[in-house]
Simulated scan of single mutants.
Amino acid sequence: MTDRIFSLAALTVLELSPPDMVEAAARAGYSHVGLRLVPATEQEQHFPLVADASLRRQTQARLRDTGTKVLDLEILRLKPDTCVADFKAILDVGAELGGTELLVAGNDPDESRLTERFAHLCDLAADYGIYPHLEFMPWTEVRDLRQAMRVVANADRGNACVLVDAFHFNRSASALADLATLAPERLRYAQLCDVAGPVPDDMDEILRQARNERRFPGDGDADLVGLLRALPANVPLSLEIPTRQLLEQGISGEQRARMALQRAKAVLAKATSLP
């Protein structure tokens, strides 16, 4: 377990600028961070790393000074009108910052077109040594693990991967048996959190929970031990755990990051112990 990479995801501490996030992650005990180059929504707070060269320099300086590395880059969306070539500037910045994993959302109802563009993105990313990961989320057009696996398989690219997020795995009713059939090389990192209560009937409520009310590992109902045992050994774990209630209570980003890491290590210890 000592060799496991833990990365602090941007959504966990979205209020922090990238340089401050790197500093908080390093102080909290993380070796890596995930950087959000493109906002997930128009409403969220965003720090424009792609457009702001000064912010990039500050971030790179903090990475260098703390010894922290970048694990993943987010978030690119494949939509009906997407031109994959337009992502080049984002990949340029991501590679400059040292990221190797790329989070991709599928927002195109035409699965054939989505697959074709995902393959094109993989080809573009390959020039940078970057691995696109298709993340299934129940409110997107790639709703569950099986569908993400199908798109990645049909894209048929060596750097094409699937991203498993514990929240989405639970809320999409994806199965550990399916995960066990996925080749380990298609899983280069995973996102860890916990989730409480039954799956809501309302998709808007699922989305609200995903962005605001996740739980620290071990504080919810998800079978995280089973999930961790089904993932490849020593796969890097990105802790993506937005907890708006704690933020509103004034608990700092660094404190929340530290709490997340402590809980994640405790759950991982259970998963890696003998039965």
Rank of each mutant, 00 (worst) to 15 (best):
D201K: 08
E96G: 06
E74K: 04
L78D: 14
T82N: 13
P19R: 07
T243A: 09
A26R: 11
G220A: 04
L261D: 02
V33L: 09
R215Q: 13
A260I: 02
R77Y: 08
V199R: 12
D178F: 00
K79E: 15
H46D: 13
P236I: 02
E248G: 06
V84I: 15
P242S: 10
V152D: 08
D65M: 09
L274P: 01
V38M: 13
E185A: 09
F216S: 00
E101Y: 07
P132A: 03
Q191W: 01
L192C: 02
P109C: 07
P236N: 06
W139A: 07
L268Y: 13
S238G: 12
L176S: 05
L114Y: 11
Y189R: 04
D204M: 08
T181C: 07
P198F: 00
A153W: 07
A61N: 14
R258F: 02
Q262W: 01
D65C: 03
S252G: 15
D81N: 15
C83L: 14
G197Q: 02
L207M: 10
S273V: 00
S172W: 05
R36Q: 13
E213T: 03
A9H: 14
E248V: 06
D194P: 06
L8P: 11
L121A: 07
T68H: 01
R157E: 03
V93L: 06
L103M: 11
K79Q: 15
K88I: 00
V162E: 07
A89V: 12
D86I: 01
Q249T: 09
M203I: 14
A271T: 08
D156F: 02
D204G: 09
V33M: 11
M149R: 12
L134R: 02
T2M: 09
G197N: 07
L55G: 10
H120A: 15
K88A: 05
A61L: 09
E23I: 12
D202S: 03
E23D: 14
R146K: 10
N212G: 08
L237A: 05
A155M: 06
D219K: 11
H133Y: 02
L187E: 03
A222K: 00
L145G: 03
I5K: 12
E185G: 00
